[in-house]
């Protein structure tokens, strides 16, 4: 039997096929990822190229209202940027930041969680105390303060070039306790099992036992929280950009597009804020629904109840 066939027949895939919500959210996510990847080819305009922007076209209403310019299906922003193109590129930036930030979180959190869980004792209580403090300070608060200080230190001009990198690093570092706690909990359970004793008896190094033997058995919960973590990272990025601490208006993410349109909703240009907002909400909702489904599907405890 081929691997593909085995995957198709697995309980996991079976549950997926039976759940319309899961299928829908997966399809929506797939569509967003494809749209973002193909943006340079399908977008009517390159929103980063100032030469393609014409101020004469600024604040055009969406074309479907009957009064807009058919060149700009979703209208334009105050710079004359085609909103559809900006959203396609912006979705890409939001996804990019979200995924890389979560990868960074996972690397830091999984390493700390493995070490804390396996070593126990003082190391464990130190890291868990640190995680408690970090969690209660809240990601957004830590990120706002860190980015505010960086922005003040670098000056707005230089900060614009570094923004994407800073966002990934700050969101990545701020959320490590989520992974650390999850991994630690599974390590504590795995540590007592016989295969770990066996590995220790044949003299394998600690690092090898942790990463090669325990980690593969602790992967399921990591997978479960990752989906929701990407959604959280995207929300954080949007919030930070909305506050003016994230992506600049010249290379907008969804959050900075919402920010740039916010001042115009009072003068009737609702579309600049509304369309990126809708895309952002649908994106996050799809991630959250898929994450919820994943948690139910992979968690054997809940499995029995339903």
């Amino acid at each position: 039997m081929s691997t593909l066939q085995r995957v198709w027949d697995s309980n996991f895939a079976y549950q997926f096929r039976r759940d319309p919500v899961a299928i829908c959210s997966a399809l929506v996510l797939l569509a967003f990822v494809l749209a973002a990847l193909l943006a340079p080819w399908i977008a009517p305009q390159n929103p980063y190229d100032p030469l393609q922007l014409d101020l004469m076209n600024s604040k055009e209403p969406p074309a479907f209202g009957g009064q807009g310019n058919p060149d700009f299906p979703l209208g334009t922003d105050d710079q004359g940027r085609d909103l559809l193109s900006a959203i396609l590129y912006g979705t890409g930036i939001s996804l990019l930041i979200g995924i890389f930030a979560v990868m960074l979180q996972a690397v830091i959190g999984v390493s700390i969680g493995l070490v804390a869980g396996y070593m126990g004792g003082r190391v464990d209580s130190f890291f868990m105390r640190l995680a408690d403090i970090q969690l209660s300070l809240s990601t957004l608060m830590v990120a706002i303060i860190a980015l505010a200080v960086f922005q003040a230190a670098f000056g707005p001009q230089r900060y614009e070039d570094l923004a994407i990198f800073m966002l990934i690093v700050v969101i990545g570092i701020a959320e490590w306790p989520q992974y650390a706690r999850t991994v630690r909990a599974s390590v504590l359970a795995e540590r007592e099992k016989e295969y770990v004793d066996a590995a220790r008896v044949i003299g394998l190094s600690r690092a090898r036992i942790m990463f090669r033997h325990i980690l593969p058995n602790a992967l399921t919960p990591i997978l479960v929280i990752s989906t929701v973590q990407v959604a959280n990272a995207i929300v954080s990025e949007a919030a930070l950009s909305f506050l003016g601490l994230g992506m600049p208006v010249t290379t907008p993410s969804l959050g900075s597009l919402i920010r740039s349109g916010f001042e115009f909703i009072f003068s009737g240009q609702w579309w600049i804020t509304t369309f990126p907002s809708v895309v952002l909400i649908v994106l996050i909702l799809a991630f959250n629904l898929l994450g919820d489904w994943l948690r139910d599907a992979l968690n054997p405890k809940l499995y029995k109840e339903t």
Partner: peptide, 12 residues
């Protein structure tokens, strides 16, 4: 749905 709508969008 509420969890998925960022607070600044609810506000806007």
């Amino acid at each position: 749905v509420g969890i998925s709508i960022p607070v600044f969008l609810t506000a806007i």
